[in-house]
Design a protein around this nucleic acid. Sequence first.
DNA 1: CGCTGAGTTGATGACAATCAACTCGGGTGG
DNA 2: CCACCCGAGTTGATTGTCATCAACTCAGCG
Lengths: 263, 263
Amino acid sequence: MPQALNSAKFKIRARPHTHCGDCAIRRLALFHGVPADQLEWTQGFRSAQLDILSKHNLMDEGETPESLYTLYRGWALVYKTLPNGKRQILRIALPGDLLGYQMDMVGPSDVTIRTLTPAIACAFPRAKFWEYLDSHPELMRSLNRMNAYYMSVCQHYLMGIGRKSALERVGFLLMDLWSRGRDLGEIIGFSEQDGLEFPLSQEDMGDAIGISSVHVNRTLREMREDGLIELDSRHLKVLDETTLSEIAHFDTALATSRYSIFS
Amino acid sequence: MPQALNSAKFKIRARPHTHCGDCAIRRLALFHGVPADQLEWTQGFRSAQLDILSKHNLMDEGETPESLYTLYRGWALVYKTLPNGKRQILRIALPGDLLGYQMDMVGPSDVTIRTLTPAIACAFPRAKFWEYLDSHPELMRSLNRMNAYYMSVCQHYLMGIGRKSALERVGFLLMDLWSRGRDLGEIIGFSEQDGLEFPLSQEDMGDAIGISSVHVNRTLREMREDGLIELDSRHLKVLDETTLSEIAHFDTALATSRYSIFS
DNA sequence: CGCTGAGTTGATGACAATCAACTCGGGTGG
DNA sequence: CCACCCGAGTTGATTGTCATCAACTCAGCG
């Protein structure tokens, strides 16, 4: 099974499985609700655990994947592309995030999913997805809450792109990632001393918040000059969270609500 | 119970219940999946059916409602407001749409929901929501698919606001509503001859797609001059759907996927 | 009959896109 | 080991889309 996915196209390599029972991010992921004594089942449902190289697509818009995934390590971008080549990043995925769930779990993917760093993903076969969830009602409920959370995040970004200035949007993006980074801690390379490993390019940032990379650059400079952040060589530190949150209209409720996805 | 909701604040009046068994929009709504012989239960779950005057709030951002709703008749806007007063419309609700579902079904509402026309809504108590769904697994699944659909729509708008021109965005908005109007037909005041009753103001349209009402006006004029649409006195007719869809990058898959929310 | 809200149009200006040039660091191949 | 290249970041100059402000029309309405 891993071999089937180990195609040149995806640059996916099989690797030894870790055990769901030992999973460090289970508290964050869909399978949080599964009792420890049933994790064998989850592990059986999981079809593969995959290493993915940096800058490779886990899924392509318009192509039909066989699996959906929980991101176990690393960063990934979820985006759509317009015929003219413009790209809109819809979501920035970090460990624990569910990837590839959509309304139509039979047809082609709505989105492209691409790693920003080396990553590890746990694959689950689409074909058995509903079957598995039907036999685990608590997961069905978790999936609902998880999607409601993703929806809420999407709406915050919609609000930002529609009605905020470039400064506010960049601030929001940074605070969102900073706050999620803190939650994940060492799993994602965050520490209070050293800040956060931050693999987004300025172009990525622009595509996430609807501005050009050049303007992202100028906005970041402004923030640096105001002593709000440090950001260089893919390394972020937010120096003044309070001010940045205010500027960005960053709602801390969004951050705290992450904790309560899995009641 | 209806009396409790019949406050001056909400301008909500109790009215005689219609029967869930006769519901003309059940095929579109969450309760589609409920077998006919169990609709008594649905009806029992429903706490009230409400008439709401035009331009009144069904729910306010930051306040804690007691119910969620299925919109039975009329138009409603779902939006957020920034401290500076700017508004972003997140969703335009038509009959069959679920209103008030969010991650936190105990705390305050994330959004404001406001009618654009006289409307009818079926209310269901938040307190019993999960309980009811737990006892109806097929509804849990429908809720998942429905939210995945709403997510997909939200992502299309995110893409549009982030990366499309004013012309493309207005076109997308019109095609979205035109196509949903056609699906609903007479329920919402659509006919192939006369077009669609269209209660959005130009300011509403702007707040939905992230441009100013003045610019919406100019863009609509351009579309009229190009013979793409007619739009006046709150009445829309799309004259050239093909061209408008192309301009707007309107994905007809989005439209057809609505049919398949309830497998 | 004046008020109000929405639509319309013109004038102006701001914010951000685009174009272009240059730097810098890291990789790669000669 | 060095030259070259490439991608990303940076900055300046220019352009353009769209926001904002303002004035006016018009229909509906109390």
